[in-house]
Design a protein around this nucleic acid. Structure first.
Lengths: 249, 249
DNA sequence: CGATAGGTTGAGTCGCATCAACCGGGGTGG
DNA sequence: CCACCCCGGTTGATGCGACTCAACCTATCG
């Protein structure tokens, strides 16, 4: 049960048999609980294990020598952080909790055994890795060529699609536990500017965002300002509702 | 022979036997030649094959609906573009030649057979994929939190390290076929600003860049302004010379 | 009830974009 | 052989988007 968001996500990528599912459940032994700002990976760590985020939001980030911080990945419930890191020697980023998190720590050996036995699962994990490559590319485009509102809009679209894929959102609203400072570190902006951009987006009638809850008021408008394209999610967005969008103009 | 830069790169990741090398050579049938601005992958393509760049520079890029363009990956001689794309359904980016290129097109099936027979090679390809993930993350940090000079400096460091890994540079100078417009599309800047930033970097005594040739004048200074860290290259930089840097100040 | 975290607002500044013109070199065609 | 063009690089003027600094407001919590 507890592994369900993770399994649900994998099933977007591969057909899993009952046995597959059983083996995945078995991966998850004791779960650990983390408070916001606690870490489960630190730069320099030798990756002898892999983490599955069962509940809560987390992020991977890098910090420059002078303190500037950039979040490079956002982890949502059901995400496995770096399925294959153990192929590498060391890691140059940190992964920390943004909200209270439930995390399962899986030894690299278990992953190796599982993927050796169960090619379907191996393929699903690789698929997931390829999707992450594509998510990152889209982030590069955002940071390189989109302005503040576009970046934020794009993030909203991405997160809603990803949450919908594991049944945590209907595609139009969701819990939004991130602070404006988190948002700034994701979008490469300052908190002040995030604040003002959000206000504009509210005034434009695109979204509502109060009390840690996000509601999309104008799907068409949001996607349009984000220039959001689901192709790069590669099936992750399969369950995203095809919303009858209200085209402006 | 013709596969050598590719093999050389793989050997950073895994020990290859003579048989391994033979099999890789055999992958490469006829090579195609491309002029700058010609494409070997287009958005929407169903990836039934994989490309190995034997000579020249190429890039993966995305174009926004309104024409803004962002280069998301730079391919150098010896790079395999997307070793495992064929796991996916379609592709949402373009790959095009920046200089005249020699490219080998390898059918997905050959890759599948090769990796099934030769686990060493499979692992080397996956390693390469993980390194690319890390390169992309570093790019996200650049675009999100580094300013113009820092971004350009970081790119120079990265490219020199990658070229050195396949024997195309000694780590302090190399051919630099990119135009300032290309540089702008990589760094998310305008060409005008790239131009002015380069001038400052020349004045700062960091680099020389004339006639499509790049020379690093001050290694320490360049790395410092780039805040460049080789960890994220994971062994790709193994052959990078440990240069006795001239620390300023 | 003070302390703290998160959000909001205003003023001033700067990095970078945009627009536009110009320069130099290499290739091309008459 | 020269006139021309085009591409890549350079320069200047101007404007805007986003940053910084700093204050203040509100809700939550021990």
């Amino acid at each position: 049960m507890i592994a369900s968001p993770f399994i649900r996500k994998l099933e977007h990528f591969a057909l899993l048999s009952t046995e597959d599912r059983r083996r995945i459940e078995a991966l998850i032994g004791r779960a650990t609980f983390l408070a916001p700002h606690e870490h489960f990976v630190r730069p320099g760590d030798d990756p002898r294990s892999v983490h599955i985020l069962l509940d809560g939001w987390a992020c991977r980030y890098k910090t420059l020598p002078d303190g500037r911080r950039q979040i490079v990945s956002l982890f949502l419930p059901g995400d496995m952080c770096d399925p294959y890191v153990f192929l590498l020697d060391a890691v140059d980023y940190a992964i920390g909790a943004l909200t209270p998190c439930t995390v399962a720590k899986v030894p690299a050996r278990s992953i190796r055994e599982l993927t050796a036995d169960r090619p379907h699962i191996a393929e699903a994990l690789w698929w997931q890795t390829l999707v992450e490559l594509d998510l990152q590319r889209e982030k590069i485009v955002s940071l390189g060529r989109r302005n503040a509102k576009e970046r934020i809009a794009h993030l909203f679209c991405e997160v809603l699609a990803r949450l919908a894929a594991v049944g945590w959102s209907n595609g139009t609203d969701c819990d939004w536990p991130l602070t404006q400072a988190d948002l700034a570190d994701i979008t490469g902006l300052s908190t002040v500017h995030v604040n003002r951009s959000l206000q504009e987006m509210r005034n434009d009638g695109l979204i509502e965002l109060h009390n840690r809850h996000l509601v999309v008021r104008d799907h068409g408008g949001l996607r349009e300002t984000a220039m959001f394209d689901t192709i790069h999610l590669h099936g992750l967005a399969a369950e995203t509702p095809r919303t009858p969008t209200t085209e402006p103009g």
